[in-house]
Design a protein around this nucleic acid. Structure first.
Lengths: 134, 134
DNA sequence: CAGTATCCGAACGGATACTG
DNA sequence: CAGTATCCGTTCGGATACTG
């Protein structure tokens, strides 16, 4: 299957042109940016607020400058995050979700909240699993 | 903050005991298994069907035996996937989602479908981004 | 403040060979 | 078929130092 680099308007095929299960579909890369170790947390941190670089660093505990920078670049390039630099001194840069980013983050937060809410169950499952092969 | 290793029933605190934004909250690890490179696709593959090991390998294009095995173990330990081995020859092992796994996968698929449906927009954003610094 | 550049160890992950 | 074991290159990612 070939993945179009432009929109598919004008075509009338029923099957979706993008499929994350396909090895080289670009949607897999974008899903990677969103679900990656720092991607999901960065989007989540921006879910409620516009934040500055170091505010993000504090909110996403454990992320390094390098990784946060990389993550933001990837999300900005994919059109999920908007970067706005004020030409002041000291510099001030605000990051916020784009409309597309908000859609994506809504679903990601639904997943995150479910996981947080079911962690007790997960920890029980782990104990059972570990006990069975002890 | 200390994360409880048991359920929190009986407490009446308003704040959630688990928080993925906290550096050492175990929910971050589980979210990692779910959103990891192969975790999301493995769950997605099991969304509709019970599948055998090699069926999964074919469905999740590009995954190696090693990674699929690791991924399934992690998901099984977290109580998201159930493994059922028939003691036949040749061996037959079926993997299917647990009820918890189905809840998680529902949300993950909502995210995946959104991303697939918005990829044209993402690719446009990338072209704009790349053009601006060419 | 908001990053970039470099170094370097750790973890990821693919290929291959092997086992029950 | 359903895995495990090993090798080994690639990438991830943290610490540190530096720039505008």
């Amino acid at each position: 299957m070939v993945f179009p680099m432009t929109t598919t308007e004008g075509t009338s095929q029923d099957q979706l042109p993008f499929d994350v299960f396909a090895r080289s579909c670009p949607s897999r890369e974008t899903l990677g940016h969103i679900t990656g170790r720092w991607g999901s947390l960065t989007l989540g941190a921006l879910a409620e607020d516009t934040l500055r670089f170091n505010e993000l660093r504090r909110r996403v505990e454990g992320v390094s400058e390098k990784m946060l920078s990389q993550t933001l670049h990837a999300l900005e390039r994919d059109g999920l995050v908007h970067r706005e630099a004020q030409p002041t001194n000291p510099p001030r840069v605000d990051y916020r979700l784009t409309p597309l980013g908000r859609e994506v983050t809504e679903r990601m937060m639904a997943l995150i909240h479910l996981v947080e809410g079911r962690m007790a169950q997960v920890l029980e499952a782990r104990e059972r699993y570990d006990a069975e092969r002890a």
